[in-house]
Simulated assay, not measured.
Amino acid sequence: MLARLLLACSCLLALAGAAWGDTCTLVTELDTGRVVKREGDCERRNSPASTFKVPLSLMGYDAGILKDEDEPAWPYRPEYKSWNEAWRKTTTPRSWLKDSVLWYSHVLTRELGEDRFKRYVEAFGYGNRDVSGDRGKANGLTRAWLSASSLQISPVEQIAFLSRLLKRKLPISGKAREMALAIMPAFPLPDGWTAYGKTGTGFQPLQNGTFDRSRQFGWFIGWAQKGERKILFARLIRDERKENFVASFRARDSLLADLPALLAE
C-alpha cells in the first residue's frame, strides 16, 4: 500500500516539476561512491538554510551544549518573535530538528560563540566556509546560513559532508556523532529501507544582496539505510516563479517518492 501511495505521489509531482526551474538531484552509494543518479546543476552553491542544522547539531553535541535527545529543553521567549506558531513552545534537540526551529539554532550558536562557531565550520570543510553573515551587518553568528547570506554549499558538497559524517571523518567525538544521528528525522520506505534527512528552505538572492520573496529554494539532504548499506542523497529546487507550497517540502516529498525505484537499481 505504501509503495502504491509513493508511486502515485511521484507521478503527481513529476507533472508539477516543470514549474520548479533549476533542480539538482544527486544520489550516491556511501561505500563505493557510485553515482546512482545525477541530474541538473549540482555544482552551483546555494544557502544551506535549515540543512545547516545537521552540522550545528554536531557542533552542539561536541561542545557539550546539547546533552542528549531531550536536553537542553529551552523555553520559548517572546523576544524570539517566531513567525511560526509551532515554534512557540519549549524545544528539545529532537524537536528542534523535527520542527526546524530557528530560534533554537540562534540560542545554540550564541552559546558556541563566534570563534568556536567559525572553527567548527572551517574544520568541517563546510561549503565556502564563509560565516561573516549579511553584507556589512556582522551578523554571521545568527544569519550566515540563511537565504542570501554568506555561507554557501553545493549539492556535491552536501554529499561530501554527509559522507565524512557517516564515515566518521569529521573532527568530533564519537558520542557527538551518535547523538546527532539519533535526532535526525526518519522516514520509512518500502522493502526495509529508512531515509534520514533534513529539509531547508529560503528565498533566492537578488543582485543587490537581498532576497526575492517571490522565488523560493528548497533542499532535502540525507541518506537511506537498509542494514549496512547506505545511499546518500541531495535534492535542491530553485523556483522560477512564485509557488505556494514550501519548496523544501516539495524537495522532500518528491525525493522520498523517487527513492524506492532508485534504491532498487
Rank of each mutant, 00 (worst) to 15 (best):
L189T: 11
G136S: 12
R164M: 02
R119E: 15
E157C: 03
R168W: 00
I153F: 00
T194P: 01
S149Y: 01
L146G: 13
M184A: 11
K169M: 05
F161H: 06
S154V: 04
W193N: 06
F203D: 14
I183V: 15
G136N: 14
A144P: 07
G192N: 14
R177F: 03
L151V: 13
F117M: 08
A138K: 12
K198P: 02
A176G: 12
L141I: 15
E157M: 00
S132C: 11
A180R: 04
K175E: 15
A144D: 10
L151D: 14
S163G: 12
L189M: 10
S147R: 00
A186F: 00
R135S: 14
P185D: 09
G136Y: 04
M179V: 02
G133F: 10
G133R: 14
L146K: 11
R129K: 15
T142A: 06
G202F: 02
I159A: 02
P155M: 00
A182C: 09
E157K: 02
R135C: 06
S163F: 00
L162E: 10
A180L: 01
E157Q: 13
I172C: 07
G140A: 09
R143G: 10
T194I: 13
L141S: 14
F117C: 08
W145N: 15
G200A: 03
S154F: 01
I153M: 05
S147F: 02
A195D: 15
E114A: 07
R143W: 05
S154E: 07
F161P: 02
L146A: 09
G140R: 01
L181P: 05
Q152R: 10
L146T: 08
N128K: 06
R119S: 13
E122K: 11
F117A: 05
P185F: 02
L151R: 06
L189C: 08
T199E: 10
P155T: 01
V131K: 08
K118C: 04
R177P: 02
R129P: 14
M184K: 08
E157G: 03
L162P: 13
Y126L: 09
A160W: 03
R135L: 04
F117R: 02
P188F: 09
W193R: 13
A186K: 15
G127S: 09
R129H: 07
G127Y: 07
E114Y: 04
A123T: 10
P190G: 10
T194Q: 09
I172E: 05
G113K: 06
R164T: 00
E114K: 04
A138W: 00
G133Q: 12
T194D: 12
E178P: 02
E114C: 01
L166I: 08
G127M: 08
L181I: 13
N139M: 06
E114L: 07
G192L: 11
G197C: 10
I159C: 03
K118G: 12
R116V: 14
D130C: 07
S150A: 09
G197V: 12
L165A: 06
Y196N: 05
T199H: 07
G200V: 07
A195V: 04
M179S: 11
A195Q: 12
E157S: 10
R129V: 05
N128I: 07
D134G: 14
T199Y: 04
K198I: 13
R143S: 13
Y126A: 04
G133E: 03
R129N: 03
K118D: 11
I153D: 02
L151A: 09
K175R: 12
R143I: 00
L162H: 09
A148F: 00
T194E: 15
L151Q: 04
